[in-house]
Amino acid sequence: MASPGPVTRDLLETFDDVHSRTFACLDGLTDTEYLWEPVASCMTLRADTNGVFRADPRPAGDVRPAPFTTIAWRIWHIGADCLRGYGRFFEDESQSGDRHLWPGTATEGIQMLADDWSRFRNRVEALGDDRLLQPIGPRAGAYGHESYLLLALHALDEAAHHGAELGVLRDLYHHGFAA
């Protein structure tokens, strides 16, 4: 593969920096922390009668304040809801399966996030500068006029701000706020 152009290179460098910070803050995450509910009525992952975990769906409409979420839910959101979910905008990806299915353990959840992160990053890298700057096209519906660069920047924003929230939740847990 040829060296990436400057837009792709800088975007991936930033994406990799966010990846490093996010995964460093998840190092040593326990299952208890993963599913810790710091407030009542958290959105989280819940096991069904078969023991299969699913992420709680977001409430309809613009609910303010937004429901509080667990570390597990935020990891799911970055991985499946955002990075994997945005796969539908790439020509080689069809949207199939239930994105709400997610592992109920910290180790498996972090691995699934790593897989989704890697897949999205590789798709962005494969586009290259020219395609990054072009509109996504009809597969993106009302967003078809937007560029792949804007999609990648949106994914970067989601990963960075939710990654920071993961760090804050872990800090709260380790500083005695866990009941």
Rank of each mutant, 00 (worst) to 15 (best):
F68T: 12
L166S: 07
R64H: 06
L101M: 15
T8N: 04
S41F: 00
D10S: 14
R139K: 05
G79S: 13
E13S: 09
D157L: 13
S20G: 15
H174K: 14
C42H: 11
P38V: 02
D130P: 01
T8D: 02
W36P: 11
D31V: 10
V39C: 08
T44G: 10
A40G: 15
R9S: 15
F120D: 05
A114T: 08
A178C: 10
G137K: 06
L101W: 08
M1Q: 09
A47R: 06
Y86V: 00
P67F: 01
G28F: 09
P38W: 00
H175N: 13
R64L: 12
M1S: 09
W117M: 00
W73K: 03
A40S: 15
F68M: 02
Q111K: 12
A60H: 13
M1A: 08
G176M: 03
L113Q: 06
A80L: 08
Q95K: 06
L11S: 12
D48K: 03
P65H: 07
P57I: 02
L127I: 06
A159M: 13
E33Q: 14
R21M: 02
A114N: 05
F177L: 14
W102S: 08
Y143P: 01
E93C: 13
H175P: 06
A80W: 09
R131D: 05
D27P: 00
A2S: 11
A160G: 11
D92C: 05
L151T: 04
G51V: 05
D31H: 10
L156Q: 03
I71H: 05
E37Y: 08
G167A: 02
A2K: 13
T32F: 00
G61N: 15
D116W: 12
